[in-house]
Simulated scan of single mutants.
Amino acid sequence: MHPTEADRTDAACEAGRGWIHEAIERVEADRNRSADTHLFPIPLPREWGVDLYLKDESTHPTGSLKHRLARSLFLYALCNGWIREGRPVIEASSGSTAVSEAYFARMLDLPFIAVMPASTSKEKCALIEFYGGRCHLVDDPTAVVAESRRLAAETGGHFMDQFTYAAQATDWRGNNNIAESIFHQMDRERHPVPCWIVVGAGTGGTSATIGRYVRYQRHATRLCVVDPENSAFFEGWVRRDPEFATGLGSRIEGIGRPRVEPSFMPEVVDRMIRVPDAASIAAARWLAGHTGRRAGGSTGTNLWGAFQVISELRAAGQRGSVVSLLCDGGERYAHTYYDDGWLAGQGIDPRPYRAAIDAFLATGVFQG
Rank of each mutant, 00 (worst) to 15 (best):
D227W: 02
N230V: 01
F163I: 11
C195L: 11
T170E: 13
P228N: 01
A167S: 15
G211S: 06
P192N: 00
H219Y: 15
H191W: 14
E229I: 01
S207I: 01
A179H: 11
M186D: 01
G200L: 08
V226L: 09
C195F: 03
G174K: 05
W172E: 08
D187N: 08
N175M: 08
G202W: 11
F233L: 13
G205M: 10
N177V: 06
Y216V: 00
F183Q: 05
E229G: 05
G174A: 10
N175V: 08
T206E: 08
R222K: 15
I210D: 04
R188L: 12
A220T: 13
D171I: 09
F163H: 14
I210R: 00
A167I: 07
Y213C: 03
N230Y: 14
T209S: 12
P192K: 04
V193N: 00
V193T: 11
G174Y: 07
Q185E: 11
T170I: 15
R218Y: 04
Q217L: 00
V198I: 13
Y165G: 05
R215S: 06
W196N: 03
R173N: 12
N176S: 13
Q168E: 15
R190N: 10
R218V: 03
E189W: 07
G200I: 08
A166F: 10
G174H: 06
G211P: 00
T203L: 09
D227N: 14
Y165A: 04
I178D: 10
R190F: 04
R190E: 15
G211N: 05
Q217S: 01
G202S: 09
T221D: 03
R173I: 05
Y165K: 10
W196Q: 03
G204W: 09
D227Q: 07
D227A: 06
Q168V: 09
R190Y: 07
D171M: 06
F234W: 14
G236M: 06
R215Q: 13
V214L: 12
A201L: 12
T164F: 13
R222C: 01
G236L: 08
R188S: 13
E189I: 06
A232F: 03
I178F: 11
W172T: 06
V225S: 05
I182K: 01
I182Q: 02
N230F: 13
V193M: 02
G200S: 09
V225K: 05
D227Y: 04
S181Y: 04
G211T: 02
Y216D: 14
R190G: 01
S231P: 04
C195V: 13
